[in-house]
Amino acid sequence: MAPDLLWTLIAFFLTILVLSYVLGDNALFRMVMMIFVGISAGYGAVLLFYQVIMPRLITPLVTAPPADRMVLIIPAVLSILLLFKLSPRLSVLGNPSMALLTGVGAAVAIGGAVSGTLFGQISGTISLFDLSGLSSAGSAISQLFGGIVLLTGTICSLAYFHFGARKKGEENTGAQPAIIQLLAGIGKVFIAITLGALFAGVLAASLAALIERLDFLINVIKPMIS
């Protein structure tokens, strides 16, 4: 039996076992899940060792010039300290590594979010109201209408997540101002449309994956039948 056919049959049965979830959670489905998790973890460990640790840490420490070795000692020590997180008693030794990872990650994420998302989205929203470059009035109206809808949706969605309430004297009534309630109501509609679109996207992606798997099964069974 050719290896391809063997792996195709394994994939076929694993696909059938996964599809058995239509009958509910069962042992066969859980077995496939365990196999998938185990293979992924093993593959990831091997990949990390051979793709990251060996070529980027161990090999340079052995073969690189002394100057580069001194530089590599810092990540090596931090990586070793990170292993102490496995022990509850010695986990404190891994705090510097975790602090470095968290700090650097947060700084990078915030910087990227400000420059890439905040400024980019504000600029993109404003650009919809720039009608100078448009050739026809219809395009201008269409772009302006799209800009108004986008701006309205953005403001109303932000208003929906405004949970503050104004005090009346010393008593906190818990009620939002009327304008906020109006905007939040409109924002709720935009949020519902967005969540509906996301759900439709998830459903479409799942349907595409199911179609691809069913086509795989057909492609496996069809030669056998014929």
């Binding site: 989205q121 993109g124 929203t125 679109a197 996207g201 479409a204 992606a205």
Partner: peptide, 16 residues
């Protein structure tokens, strides 16, 4: 994937 399209659509609108 189809499930990511609504999230990435604003970046498409902004030209990013």
């Amino acid at each position: 994937s189809a499930q990511v399209a609504p999230v990435l659509q604003p970046y498409v609108q902004s030209g990013q």
